[in-house]
Design a protein around this nucleic acid. Structure first.
Lengths: 100, 100
DNA sequence: TCCATAAATCGAGATATCGCGATATACCGC
DNA sequence: GCGGTATATCGCGATATCTCGATTTATGGA
């Protein structure tokens, strides 16, 4: 876990908001029937919610993934992103232990 | 509490390290006798420990202060900085509540 | 094979942050 | 007032981040 990368990824209100939205799948439109059993949310839905460009959101999701805070899975043309709960918890724990 | 400012201030390993050092006064040289009863550490001691220029450390301390994470008190020519425990705890709590 | 769709990558201009040396300000003791 | 010390501020070049539109890559369907 790279705390520097993680804090850097968190140092943006929209990226933090994305992590918050991802806590609850119902923040996004319902999944297509063929994706009903898959975990995570596709880039297009996140983009729509965040109201930033496709390229920006794709970059943001890569950043979050690079920091370990989300996991991704490709299914056909879609990439589904979901929270990495362990990494998020570990990051918050490390920050608290360091600073508290 | 401005979480954006706080995370931004924390988004630097040396500023985080300073907050960690400030947990324990003994990380710095002993206070001058005439400062024995004062709380906090002067800029010069922090600078020496961090091994960055005086202007950089002064700016860093201003940033941390602006974010509310430290408090400052001027005594004569010296400015003494100390942790703002409540603000640090509140920042970590907010981050955890938002993201966890 | 072609076309359409989803996502990733590229290139760029605008803005922010980093860290410095130089300078300014504030305060002290003489 | 003057010189010295501690800190703050200024100006700057270097680097990083932000966000975009355009392009590329990957995939699926007709």
């Amino acid at each position: 876990m790279d705390i520097d990368k993680a804090i850097s990824a968190l140092n943006n209100p929209i990226r933090r908001q994305i992590l918050i939205w991802l806590k609850d799948r119902s923040n996004f439109p319902p999944a297509l029937p063929e994706h009903a059993d898959l975990d995570g949310v596709c880039v297009a839905y996140i983009q729509e919610k965040a109201a930033l460009s496709q390229s920006t959101i794709s970059t943001y999701m890569s950043l979050l993934k690079d920091a370990g805070l989300v996991l991704s899975a490709r299914h056909g043309q879609w990439t589904f992103y979901r929270r990495n709960e362990e990494a998020i918890a570990a990051t918050l724990k490390k920050l608290s232990e360091d600073l508290q």
